[in-house]
Amino acid sequence: MEASELLQLVIAGLKNGSIYALLALGFTIVYAATNVINFAQGEFYMLGGMLAVFAFSGLNVPLVAAVALAVVTVAGIGALFERLAIRPRKDADPMALIIITVGGSLVFASVARHLFGSDALPLPEFTPGPSFVFAGAAIERQTIWIWVIVTATVIGLTLLYNRTRLGRAMRACMENREAARLMGIDTARVVMVSFALAAALGALAGVAVTPLTSTRFDIGAGIAVKGFAAAILGGLGSPLAAVAGGLLLGLIEQAVIPFSSVLKDVVALAVLLLVLFVRPQGLFRRTRKEKV
């Protein structure tokens, strides 16, 4: 294989990996606040793309505004979902809450089909134009946008966690929710904000990818599996670990393609299982001794 082909596969891996990373971040944020895996995360991705298409093509809003509108609306939907479906059962067993999120994802997909139909819907690229060519490998403009979004998200989240009162409250909840509550932190608010933030990141990923793939009411579940796998690889810990998990998953997938594209998903999931056997806490999370 030539170097340019190898580079092209790496670019594809980093592109897909960045998408998985944004979803993994959503899983990680909600898990940190609630110990729940939110399987509706993929639907936030779908809704982001759908609402952007609707605002752009249906309401004729300029693209930038359509993107912003979609992300903000989905963040609101995430908060509302937490308020209506999660909070009433907040003391239930995490398994019950996980089932609620699975149900929620079915509801979101059905409502989207009802409102937007079952066809694939396209969205123009943020900055149309030919791909950049770098050492014989092509990088499409939209991929650069995806990378910019991931980088900005990681920086933003790091600042949020380390510099703001809200972020510190979120970290406190991550460490020990009960203790945080006793220290006077409004944990209910932290949980709602976490859902809104996760939904916004999912929507952002969906909006960034739709120009490349079009969107459809039923794409959420498929991408959620990838994002979940990336989150587990990263260890459901820091934002950086989630991003590393996503990029790694994307790269593993592309590494399999020259040998057999049929086995791409199988090998990626086998690696995930292997990680779970060897390092159940994920690749990028330090174990901490629990004090009794």
């Binding site: 082909e5 092209q8 596969l9 670019i11 594809a12 891996g13 592109k15 897909n16 998408i19 990818v209 490349l212 793939t213 794409i219 579940a221 498929g222 991408i223 997938e253 592309q254 393609i257 020259p258 594209s261 791409k264 998903d265």
Partner: peptide
């Protein structure tokens, strides 16, 4: 490719 795939640049590169 899988129906749920979002990108086929890897396959096309090969």
């Amino acid at each position: 490719f899988k129906p749920a795939d979002t990108d086929m640049t890897g396959q096309l590169t090969v």
